[in-house]
Structure formats: structure tokens, C-alpha cells
Simulated assay, not measured.
Amino acid sequence: MMAKVIFHHTDGKNEEVTIRDGHTILRAAIQGRVSLRHKCGGRASCTTCRVQIPNQDGVSKPNLKEIQKLGQAGINENLRLSCQTKVYKSVDAHIPEDPYKARIRSLLKKQQEN
């Protein structure tokens, strides 16, 4: 069986990757050359690969590592670690804006206002 991950970027760009059933979202990103930050190699220790998944019907339930790293508040906001989240159907994964780019954008906006 095949599953599908549709990556949604903050700039409005979408990328679709088809993977084998049960593979992780991070594996889909790497396979499809999707720009998704990750540092720890899929060991759930850095949280840089987090994504937001509004409808989680087609993915695995949050595991203990995810709950510990994201907290129950993060889980309640539909945040997931892409290295731990396995895909079984079609799923939409929203990639958050890079924190450095967000900070630069904020500073530029502030500068323009002054």
C-alpha cells in the first residue's frame, strides 16, 4: 500500500510525496527533497522536524517521545514530530516557518514601520 504526504509551506507552496504505508513524514520529506529542518537523525531529541497535522486520521498516534518533547499542549495543537509520525493514508503536514526567517521578517517589518 502507498500513502501520501502533502507538505504545506508558509509561503503557500505545496509539495506532494508518495511513500510506502507506515513510513514517517520525515522519510517522505527526505525522499521527496522537501525542505524540512531536522538535526538529530530521527531520534526525537531535537524537535526541529515538527509539523502541524490538522487531521490526524491517517497517521500513528503520538508516542511517548513525542508527548515528552512537545508536551500535551503541543499535541493538543496538532503538533507532531515528523521523525516519529508514521503515515497510513493521505495526510496534510504544515511546515512551520523557520524561526530565523521569522525573526528577520519581524525585524524588517519593524524597521519599515519606523
Rank of each mutant, 00 (worst) to 15 (best):
M1D: 05
M1L: 13
M2P: 04
A3C: 04
A3T: 06
A3Q: 01
K4S: 12
V5A: 01
F7M: 04
H9T: 05
T10L: 08
T10F: 15
T10H: 13
D11Q: 01
G12N: 09
K13T: 15
N14S: 13
N14A: 13
E15T: 09
E16L: 02
E16F: 04
T18K: 08
T18R: 11
I19F: 02
R20S: 12
R20Y: 08
D21M: 08
G22D: 06
G22F: 08
H23L: 05
T24W: 05
I25Q: 06
I25D: 01
R27D: 12
A28C: 14
A29N: 02
I30R: 14
G32R: 00
G32I: 00
R33S: 15
V34E: 02
V34C: 10
S35F: 07
S35P: 05
L36Q: 01
R37P: 03
H38S: 15
H38L: 05
R43A: 12
R43P: 01
A44P: 06
A44V: 00
A44Y: 03
C46F: 09
T47W: 03
T47E: 01
T48R: 02
C49V: 02
V51P: 00
Q52H: 04
I53G: 02
I53L: 10
P54H: 04
P54I: 03
N55V: 14
D57I: 12
D57M: 09
G58W: 05
G58L: 06
G58S: 11
G58D: 09
V59P: 09
S60C: 09
S60H: 05
S60T: 15
K61N: 11
P62D: 12
P62S: 07
P62L: 14
N63V: 09
N63K: 03
N63Q: 01
K65C: 02
E66T: 10
I67C: 02
I67Q: 05
Q68T: 14
K69A: 15
K69W: 03
L70D: 04
L70Q: 07
Q72V: 07
A73M: 11
A73E: 05
G74T: 01
G74Y: 07
I75S: 07
N76L: 06
N76S: 08
N76Q: 09
E77L: 07
L79P: 03
R80A: 04
S82M: 04
C83T: 01
Q84G: 03
Q84K: 00
K86W: 02
K86F: 00
K89S: 13
K89C: 07
K89I: 08
K89W: 08
S90W: 01
V91F: 01
I95A: 07
I95P: 02
P96I: 11
P96G: 13
P96R: 03
E97M: 15
E97H: 06
D98V: 08
D98Y: 04
D98L: 02
P99G: 11
Y100Q: 12
A102H: 11
R103T: 09
R103E: 11
R103I: 05
I104L: 14
I104A: 07
I104G: 02
R105C: 03
S106P: 00
S106M: 13
L107G: 02
K109R: 07
K109G: 03
K109L: 05
Q111D: 12
Q112H: 06
E113R: 15
E113M: 11
N114T: 10
N114M: 10
